[in-house]
Amino acid sequence: MNPSARRQYAALLRKDLRLEYRTRETIVAMGLFSLVVTILFEFTVGERIGNTSAIAGGIIWATLTLGAVLGVGRTWVPEREQRVLDAILIAPVPRLVMMMARTTALVLFLLGVQVVVVPLAIVFFVNGTSPASLVLIAGVCILADVCIGIMGALLSSMSVFSRTRELVLPVLLLPSLIPVVIAAGGATDAALSAPRQMAEYRGYCLFLAVYAVIFALVAYATFDYILDD
């Protein structure tokens, strides 16, 4: 990135973080929603099987992904409601820079939620774990969040211009994120199981990295066509 693009990127990201700091709408809603879904899983699934350790990863990532839909849905909402979008789009900002700032903001919001929700979910579902496992899971979070952030920025930018925005986004986003849920859930289970399944963990993480790279390229190739009207 050249210096002016870096400055634009930092400005857009700072703007998103400032708006979130002031209103705290997105992170609080995502966090509460994720917790509610976690508890929902506990009473519908967890109660019925004795040892929930084996399914913890799947539950955690299904929950977090559903919560992420809320956060992704908030993308571009201030711009739309306060009619700033035109002012941003008419500024000489490369669309790729907008996309990267958006993705970064989403990743940071998701991490903000996960710092609270993931440890709680582990306490709920898993019978004792080690600090090393938590570090491994943090790695999964970062990788999966990048995947969700890229896909989220890409698809939310389309849904924001649509008539039925809130309806379109989950239908658009969730099928595309199923591979991420599968791999992130698998990696989390591999990290939580005793003994840890490192080969499996690495495989899943590699899958997430490949997913992120592929869709970053797709986003790079198509983003101009989404945000330009």
Binding site: S4, R7, P78, Q82, P92
Partner: peptide, 29 residues
């Protein structure tokens, strides 16, 4: 080199006036 103004001010309501202009100063370099 374009400036656009419509019926709305097109600024973020939850940022301060200063922060809004800082954002656009950065976007325009």
């Amino acid at each position: 080199h374009l400036g656009y103004l419509g019926h709305d001010p097109m600024v973020y309501l939850d940022l301060t006036a200063q922060q809004n202009l800082e954002l656009f100063a950065d976007l325009y370099g």
